[in-house]
Amino acid sequence: MTEATSSTSQRGKQGVQPLLDLTNLSVNYGNIAAVQSINLQVHPGEIVTLIGSNGAGKSTTLRTISGLLRPRAGEVVFEGRKISGMPGHDVVKAGICHSPEGRRIFQRMTVGENLDLGAFLRKDATQVAADRENVLTLFPVLRERLQQKAGTMSGGEQQMLAVGRAMLGNPKLLLLDEPSMGLAPVLVDLIFDTIEKIRDQGVTVLLVEQNALAALRIADYAYVLESGHLTLEGPAAELLSDESLTKAYLGG
């Protein structure tokens, strides 16, 4: 199952600083607490998944990391630097790219223009060109559609574009919000395979999913979020093999 992948994890090793560290993070919407005092670490080279049902606070957590929301309490630390409270574009500059829930590609722009916008903050033209080539290799279908208006593509293709666009920001940490939402099983497999490839290229991934089984299969470490609280965490392989857990939490 996942032995091979978990070997890349540095989790548990002494003295290794996590890439991303959420400490006692709480986020509110008005008076409604969406996320309450969660602690979550992502270590370099890992795929960490945050799973849970609708309304558990998964997307809220991601949005807080990428600076779109501000925490009520607690903080987000990235590479030893506090990033909570920074505006969104500074978070991107720091090296966190977000492929949002519902894809949110620029529908009226072409696929090529979407990818260009992914590299909006970068000035190293040659490196961007290389990264663009890399994305087009990861998602060959995008290459055929560079001139096509993004909104005319199928859901799966749009999802690939959303991930590819985020990759063009040259992230150290890639936040993926429900990349499998609304996709056919074949496409889900394809997307998840690609996420593994992306991790193998050295990009750390924080993956939010409702499709818990698929997410656990590729992840190194997993957190389970239930109505704003973290209720369970552990190496993905363990969570996956624990039958009672999969039954209770994951509907497996």
């Binding site: 969104g88 574009h89 620029f106 009226r108 722009m109 260009d116 992914g118 909006f120």
Partner: peptide, 23 residues
């Protein structure tokens, strides 16, 4: 660059911010 960031905002402000466009 500026024109590109305006276009992105016109299309989807939130997504533009996620791409690093300083709103």
């Amino acid at each position: 660059r500026l024109g590109r960031s305006w276009l992105a905002i016109r299309e989807d402000e939130l997504a533009a911010n996620m791409m690093g466009v300083p709103l």
